[in-house]
Amino acid sequence: MILIGERINGMFTNVKQAIATKDKKLIQDLAAKQTKAGAAYLDVNVGTAAADQEGAMKWLVESIQETCSTPLSLDSQKPAVIAAGLKVINAGNGVILNSTPLNKKSDEEIMDKYMEMASQAGPKASIIVLTMDKNGVPQDVDTRVAIAAEIVSKAMEKGFDTRRLFIDPIILPVKVPGAQVQPGNILAAIDQIRLLAEPAPHMAIGLSNLSQGTTERSLINRVFLAMAISRGLDSAIVDVFDRDLMNAVATAEMLMNKQIYSDSFLKVY
């Protein structure tokens, strides 16, 4: 399971403040602690508050890499912000460009831009592509799968290795009116999307979004994550500090025979 640590995100008050006051120590601590907790990648999102998003991304990447070699997931919907991070990054261990829709009204070619940036960043650079297009986020299984098929064929056309492709079927908060059908749809979509290419693209979700505004966030997150792992999900952006969640991942992977059982199997992450 490729776990991407979500904590370096300007949406969190302490990170937002650290960006504003250039408090490297807080960011570096979060990087070290998330790595220790089992993050394979660290998500880096400047949030919406920073006036100069490109400058903030650059500063975050530089600050983290001063003390930590864990690969990063540069998280922005704006190619220019990703590009700013890529300018200063050491992508030797890999980097994920997170994320782009298939296309959007204002930019039909946005996915191509992300693929292009990833190709230039090196052989270990990957991209996350959302099953979303200019018509917005699909609600049903079939449209999600249809968009995913377009994503995969676009990647293949450009010679972009599907093993460097993460498809995110977009999880919506379960509490939003009418959205309760979505977790089931996501699972059905994962089943089908994984069959679109050989080797299969990775499947990623931004897990915490699912439980936004609910009273049992950790429980909802970890139960759904275990269900999704059983369907072939192999990556997620998560709170790696959530011990129960990490234990659920280790258990689900063990039960799916992805990790060999041992009495201390929980220590894997």
Binding site: I260, Y261, S262, D263, S264, K267, V268
Partner: peptide
């Protein structure tokens, strides 16, 4: 025993 092999490795690395 594959399970015990993994266990000893975890114990040593711990």
């Amino acid at each position: 025993d594959i399970n015990i092999a993994k266990q000893v490795n975890i114990l040593a690395s711990d």
